[in-house]
């Protein structure tokens, strides 16, 4: 249930930016969550609604863009899409795959007024 802490961090980012940019209401929040990030999206949606309640992002819509996992084989250097951390290289069978994308958790954009 660390999704509650993540939702809390999203609110902090929203409030910090509000102080700088002077907006008073957030209507939509776009997050980018990698397929390999340690996040359960449904749980995050639930926690988001709870945490945003009575904040400037009360009842804000949550849009999550999922980015695909991407790995590079340390043995044969090919790049490949990966859905899990324990996948083998389709070319040489090595498990020495470095994650090069799809593990991010970012607040991308807000629709505010």
């Amino acid at each position: 249930m660390h999704e509650m802490s993540l939702a809390e961090s999203v609110l902090q980012i929203i409030e910090d930016t509000a102080r700088m940019q002077g907006y008073t209401r957030v209507k939509t929040v776009w997050l980018e969550i990698g397929q390999l990030a340690c996040v359960e999206q449904e749980s995050l949606r639930f926690c988001f609604d709870v945490v945003m309640c009575d904040s400037i992002a009360h009842q804000a819509r949550l849009e999550i863009t999922e980015t695909a996992g991407q790995g590079r084989c340390a043995k044969c250097s090919i790049e490949m899409p990966i859905a899990a951390l324990y996948e083998a290289c389709p070319k040489c069978g090595s498990y020495e795959i470095h994650v090069i994308g799809g593990d991010e958790m970012r607040v991308k954009e807000l629709e505010v007024e």
Partner: peptide, 8 residues
């Protein structure tokens, strides 16, 4: 729209 681009 406000661009944020910040790690959660």
């Amino acid at each position: 729209m406000v661009k944020i681009e910040r790690d959660i």
